[in-house]
Design a binder for these strands. Sequence first.
RNA 1: GUCCCCAUCGUCUAGCCUGGCCUAGGACGCCGGCCUUUCAAGCCGGCAACACGGGUUCGAAUCCCGUUGGGGACACCA
Length: 471
Amino acid sequence: MTQVRVRFAPSPTGFLHIGGVRTALFNWLFARQQNGVFVLRIEDTDQSRSTDESIQAIVEGMKWVGLDWDEGPYRQTERMELYRAYAMKLFESGRAYWCVCKPEDLEARRREAEAKGLSPRYDGRCRNLGIASPTSEAALRFQAPQAGETVVDDLIKGKIVFDNNILDDLIILRSNGYPTYNFSVVVDDALMKITHVVRGDDHLTNTPRQVPIFDALGFPVPRFGHLPMILGSDKARLSKRHGATSIMAYKEMGYLSEAMVNYLVRLGWSHGDQEIFTRQELIEKFSWDHVQKSAAVFNPEKLLWMNAEYIKTSPPSQIARTLIPLLEEAGLKEEVRRVSEEWLAQLVILVKERAKTLTDMVMWVTPYFGQTVALDEEAARKFLTADIAPALTKLVARFEALPTFSKQDWEECFKKLVEEAGIKMGQLAQPVRVALTGRTASPGLFEVMEVLGRERTLFRLRKGIERAQAS
RNA sequence: GUCCCCAUCGUCUAGCCUGGCCUAGGACGCCGGCCUUUCAAGCCGGCAACACGGGUUCGAAUCCCGUUGGGGACACCA
């Protein structure tokens, strides 16, 4: 059994798209499951559109979602001699020929054919010219088979038959000496000994164009697998119109990479009714025959739910660590430095079932830093009123009488006071909540006090009384 | 236009290959209830789909054909 070798081959023409991440993910999962090799290859033969920043973005994105590669990143621009050598080999064996048609003329003829309702493909006029060494600029074309059929047994779609008479002679070497995509992929996939070419659905019709090139070069043809596309809510190909498509944008919005991975894999693949998978489970359970054949609509609500699930179930200390940079960005650098990792983890436990994203979590967690808390004006006006001041004062006095904080004791003490005063729990709880957190919504009061600690609880309560008396 | 792919709740999907267990299951969202010191979370319940038409068969979501609809590809882009 030969070793499985797969690759992810993005072109560096922008940010790393979530669709690309999903493609990479399926390849990676398969490689890891099969103890195979995962290759990262940058397809940058279009010098006008490729940028170094994009390569950086790809690497950064892959690292964030934890997709490590065993080989590469290879860059096609560093392999030019290879493509030229193999192109010339095809020329020498008579499988390729020089074409001196001008790009403008080609374009005009294509439009003309389209207008007549014909297939807009190359008419083959240079095919039998027998140009040995072109005097002016020329492109090298592959002489495609005109008869018979090309059969692809796709890993996902099954058997697909293409009639070879739909093929036209595609350019493999541009007049500037650069190879085109359909040629460089073949050379690279062959030379890198890729066993399974798994890519987006949009490449399906490229397959019958590439297979004859493998054959002409004498290379074995790999297996192919074509993943369905990701669509937006209007069922059109997912684009910026539908929201963020860059993987790193999701990091910035406070998504966990594990949640992104889980969601993206589940989009188009399933294992019975299971929704949540550890990475290990994904590797073990992944299989091509449970990859959906049809396109899937990207559903941000489900992603958000999944992210919330991961926030709730991940180890709090781990969440705390990834939260730190966000807290620093939120202007809490000093405050974060002063607290312990354990306390931060406590804080995460306090708010984790309320926060759906890390960005959310920053918002939930800010009241617990610093001695004082910023009061929401509306909340203070509504709950820190003069008529509640006496009860608050009494509460503080009783709390002060308790030398150390104990959730159970303080809660008991609180309830007793409520009972004696003949008021409802909420009548005292809301003012206390506002005094402690500045807001009307928070985790349970006594959990809040526990995280705040005895002194800060008392301090904020006294501040709240001042505010209440002043109103 | 030509070629290729696809088709189960609004969405992601199970089931399809190996017809009966499917009066079609799960998840997200939505609606209602419970819990409750607020907001969440949690729990319980509800709404909601086999695109259509023909076959094959005792029996079809499942097999076959057609129609319709959606998507993709037809570059000196990848």
